[in-house]
Amino acid sequence: MTMLEGILLTIVTAATPLLFAALGELVAERAGVLNLGVEGMMAVGAVCGFAACNMTGMPLMGALAGIAAGMLAAGLFGVVALFFVANQNATGVALTLFGLGLSALIGDAFVGIPGVAVPRVNIPYLSDLPVVGRLVFGEDPFVYVAIALAIGVWWFLFKTRAGLILRSVGDNHNSAHALGFSVFRTRFLAVLFGGACAGLGGAYLSLVYTPQWTQAMTAGRGWIALALVVFASWLPGRLVIGALLFGAVSILQLHAQAIGVGIPSQFLSMLPYIVTIVALVLISRNRALLSVNTPACLGRPFVPDV
C-alpha cells in the first residue's frame, strides 16, 4: 500500500461517521427540527455499539445496537421538544450533555478493551487493483452503507411523496397541517431517523475508526455534522463533499504533524474546524441558494389551533 493510498483510505474513514450523522440531521432539519443533540446521540451510539459488539463478537450487532441507542436518545428529544413543545435548542444541548454523561457511565466497564476487527470487503482481483482497488472495492462495509444512504436520502427527499410531505412540513408547518398531514408524526419519524444515523455514526467510531471505547471519543464530530448540514445547504450531494473535505483536512493535518512542518500541533488540530467555519461563511454568502433550500420552519415549534 502506497502512502497516497493510505492517506486516501483514512480520509474516507474519517469522513464516514460525519456523513452518517449529518445525513440523519439533514433529514430532521428538512422536516423543520433542529436537533442539537447529535453529539450526544453519537456518544451513546458509540458506547452501545462497542458494548454489543464486545459481548456478541459480531460487528453487525454493534451497528444495530448503535442505531437502537441513537433512536432511543432521539425519541427522548422528540417527546420533549415535539410533544411537549419545549425549546428545541435547549433540549438539543441538554441531550448532548446527557448523552456524553450517560456514555461515560455505561462505557466505564469497557475502557481499554480492544475492539473486534471489522473485515474489509474483499472482491477477488478488483480489490487488488493498484490505488483504486482498495479505495473503491476494499473499504469496510459501513462506507458503502453510508454512500447508499446518501443516495437513498436524496431519492427519498426529492423523488418520493413521503419525502415531499417531509419537505413541506419543514417549509410551512401551518400549511402542511391545513392539508391534513401530521406535522408531529412526520417530525418525530424524521428525528428518529436522525437518531438512528447519529447512533450508527457513533458506532462506526468505536467499531471501525478507533476501534475501542474511550470517553468523549466523539470529539465534537456531532457539532461538525451539524455545521456540515448548513454548509451543504441541506443538499445530500453537497454533504458528501463537505464530509470528505473535513475528513481530508483532519487527516492531512495529522500527516503534517508527523512530518513536522514547524507549526505547533495545537494549531494544526484546529485546522479542520477552521476550514469548516470558513467554508460555512463562504457558502452563506450565496443567499439565493440558501433561501430556497433552507427549511423555513427550522427550529420553530408547532402547536395546532384547538
Partner: peptide, 20 residues
C-alpha cells in the same frame, strides 16, 4: 382557497399540487 395562501414557497407548482 385560503386568504393567506397555504402554499409551500420552496416547492414547485407541481409539488404543491401533488401534496394536496
Amino acid at each position: 382557497v385560503f386568504q393567506h395562501f397555504s402554499l409551500f414557497d420552496a416547492l414547485t407548482v407541481t409539488e404543491n399540487i401533488a401534496l394536496a
